[in-house]
């Protein structure tokens, strides 16, 4: 008499560990290689070309003309990755973070460019502008003097 064909499978399944991933105690289930997580923004690399503002379907980006940078609110992001593809300098990158639950949808982690940093950049831009103007006027006066 032959053994029933299910017996080896049943025995194997009896000895196997549960398939559940006990997540908060251990690492999450491994994510795929090209996973698109939260956007990271490098302010210094940004040249203010406005490509991301044009391409974003969710209106994450707001262009700040005074300092030629973009402000982001990534709580609205749909992780399509188009801004990363279109960014000419690589200032926008996709990280691999996805555990993003929070008590506040205007938390710091959803706003990569902070208002204080914007103020700082604005002051710098104004100073640069003034210096430029001063340089021009001094040149002009020098020309006139001749």
């Amino acid at each position: 008499m032959r053994a029933p064909p299910l017996v080896p499978t049943v025995l194997r399944n009896l000895l196997r560990k549960p398939a559940t991933n006990p997540f908060p105690k251990t690492e999450p289930v491994p994510i795929p290689e090209d996973f698109r997580g939260m956007i990271t923004y490098n302010v210094d690399k940004c040249v203010g070309c406005r490509m991301c503002v044009n391409v974003c379907p969710a209106g994450v980006f707001v262009y700040l003309p005074e300092i030629r940078k973009v402000a982001l609110w990534t709580a609205r992001c749909v992780y399509c990755g188009q801004c990363v593809d279109v960014c000419p300098t690589g200032a926008l990158q996709m990280s691999r973070d996805f555990l993003l639950a929070s008590y506040d949808n205007k938390a710091d982690r959803f706003i990569p460019l902070k208002p204080e940093k914007v103020e700082e950049l604005r002051k710098k831009a104004e100073e640069a502008k003034k210096a430029k103007e001063r340089g021009k006027t001094t040149k002009n006066t020098a020309k006139k003097g001749r």
Partner: peptide, 15 residues
């Protein structure tokens, strides 16, 4: 609690 993501992974919902 807000869970951003489009869609969020099941772990994010669990968190």
């Amino acid at each position: 609690v807000y869970v951003p993501g489009c869609p969020p992974r099941p772990e994010a919902i669990l968190q």
